[in-house]
Amino acid sequence: MKADPKAAHVAQEFTHDAPLITCRFDPTGRFIFATAEDRAILRWDLATGQKTVFTAHDSWVGALAFTPDGTTLVSAGYDDQLIWWPATAEKPAPVRKVKAHAGWIRALAVSKDGKQLASGGNDRVVKLWSLADGAPVREFPGHDRDVYSLLFHPSGQFLLSGDLKGQVHQWEIGSGKLARKFEGKDLHSYNGGQQVDFGGVRSLALTPDSKHLLAAGLHKATNPLGAVHEPIALRFEWESGKLLKSHISEDVKQGVLWRIIAHPDGPLIGCSGGGNGGFLLFWAADAEKPFHKFSLGNTAREMDLHPDGLQIATAHYDKKLRLTKLSPKPAAPAAAPAKKA
């Protein structure tokens, strides 16, 4: 079935005891995982709704990643640690802990062949690990500020990392050299009155044909400390590195794109959260403004797309994980005929 964004509706909700931070489907599509402000990692079985809690981190968990077969989960904490877990275990316990960074680990990515894991965070260094055994492979120093997002190029040759200053670094995995930079200047601003840097590449994505790179975050940050800013995604041509288009949403005055995904069917999906609430925004590839905006009912903080391409999970401040389906609601059962008096 082809995804129909205009038919988006929240089909299911899962609730926890603390506000949620991020979420990811496992590659098999059986589970949705989320993290929360109580330091927990949560796993819900989509079929049964059963919740399992993973606990081991000494802080919030900012990112999750899986082996391609879905058997191993890696979690990245704000406690410097990467932790390997048996993803499907009934009573999950850590199988490996690695002190990977100095400070928050904000982003993880897994290579297409499933052999390598990349991590990045507040120490401004991107690191490459063996996903199988957690052995360090290579480091990519060079970001001026915190690393916010990571993405492997499907060719296996490059790793992309986005930072607070709106820069995307393209690294050669084999040599560790910086191949080039994409300058996402619109994604960063310095507010002289408040004396703060703000923005950043909150999410990276490639279109299915790998011809375009998308870098998402926020712009028009007139009041960074007061959450006044608008969502934006920048579309770069991969070949030339040229900025082709900005995808914006002018009627969301208080929002940031926490994640951007290029749907296999074509549309671009952004997850926006902020003072205006939580939204799924849908853009056509060549359009500046979204063709559809779906309200999620509460501030969203992250998003993931199910392997079936028809379900979107969003993590929310109101402690709920919402499952939105991009297909028409099933028809309501026909009402029983009224009894005659």
């Binding site: 400070g103 009155g193 004396q195 703000f198 960074p224 400390l225």
Partner: peptide, 17 residues
């Protein structure tokens, strides 16, 4: 030293400041 009025992204801004 400015600015700590972090109604938004308190943790990022305190890390920075």
């Amino acid at each position: 030293h400015s600015n700590y009025d972090t109604h938004n992204e308190n943790f990022n801004f305190h890390f920075e400041q």
